[in-house]
Design a protein around this nucleic acid. Structure first.
Lengths: 187, 187
DNA sequence: CTTTAATTTCTGAAATTAGAGAAATTGGGT
DNA sequence: ACCCAATTTCTCTAATTTCAGAAATTAAAG
């Protein structure tokens, strides 16, 4: 039943994924649970995740909720078993896009919102040093540009996305003005 | 001398930036220091950062070192003052690229390295379930594709980058077979 | 070379976050 | 409706991270 966890490469992967999580503001256990599900070729139920990772049932429950909120794992029903089972995305593009979408929603969107409000409330306060208004405004615009771009490309069909990525910097050839002498626009 | 910190919008920005930091695995104080320097139009020395943010001198010292390691702030010498002073990038593209470069170096590159080793050590172990080798291999390849893309586009002149970003998903028109319909969106 | 300002490193305390186990709740099966 | 497996919520403890102050180091100025 668990030769799986005896494979040292599997353990290494899970451990490392957990550490990666902590570096990016994701709970180590949650990241480990994700790694475990990613490597599993069949749905796992909570209890099995507990024993394989040595975590308390409660934390597994919360972790599963968190991973579901990112939409990178989903609940599945297993014939003849009353317990909830879970599987992870194995399509890594999908996974990345969903994580990006959720982090945008949680962190970037509220930031843009706030920056907009701050910029607005600084409007026309001529007694203040103007560079403050300008820099907050520029950050606002910058994050807006980034997220608009993301919202746009995330809707591309997967093969197109992959093709674009493979093309890398050579995509610049298609830009009017090319990569030669371009116009100074926004920063 | 410090009407600056009395502007509520400045305080809000700094506070929010600190919180953003914590969400992305960056120390709150470090992020606040960065925000302060970003909004300042002149070089600040460590002591001034201490008093403005209410931090201990030691932490400011460490934070400055961390921000310098990302190369998003730099030391400057101020005429007739013996203390080190610091300024932040105000070019946000630059800033983003440098942060990405450093996080790649610290976190992604070692991960790719590890995944490569794991995949290699799984090669030809026919008694193991093949999906494990396949999934670790796919993750390895995926991260490789992403970082190669990044290494490529980061070298583009900034105006080209901006133009590409403005173009958004319409860039797909230049891909063979790229003008297909957007993918159905489950989230 | 000596003095002293400036900075960094070290150490322990405070605050925060993660995690285990118990208690409470939910929901399917009969 | 009742029972019991499954899950979630709650509470307390452990681990980690952050951070202030002290001590040590570095380096500019005379």
């Amino acid at each position: 039943m668990s030769a799986f966890m005896d494979i040292t490469e599997v353990r290494s992967f899970i451990l490392h994924w957990g550490e990666m999580g902590t570096q990016w503001g994701v709970n180590r256990s949650v990241a480990q649970m994700h790694a475990l599900l990613y490597l599993s070729d069949r749905p796992l139920h909570a209890e099995e995740i507990c024993t394989r990772l040595g975590l308390a049932r409660s934390n597994v429950s919360n972790g599963l909720k968190e991973l579901q909120s990112y939409r990178i794992i989903r609940r599945v029903h297993v014939e003849g078993d009353r317990r909830d089972h879970f599987v992870a995305d194995t399509d890594l593009w999908d996974m990345l896009m969903k994580i990006a979408a959720e982090r945008k929603r949680r962190e970037i969107d509220p930031t843009i919102q706030l920056l907009g409000e701050l910029a607005e409330s600084l409007d026309g306060r001529t007694q203040l040093p103007p560079h403050i208004h300008e820099r907050i405004g520029r950050m606002h615009e910058f994050l807006g540009t980034l997220t608009n771009w993301y919202d746009d490309v995330r809707r591309l069909p997967r093969p197109t996305l992959v093709a674009l990525m493979k093309l890398g910097g050579r995509i610049a050839r298609f830009i009017p003005g090319g990569k030669t002498k371009p116009s100074a626009d926004t920063d």
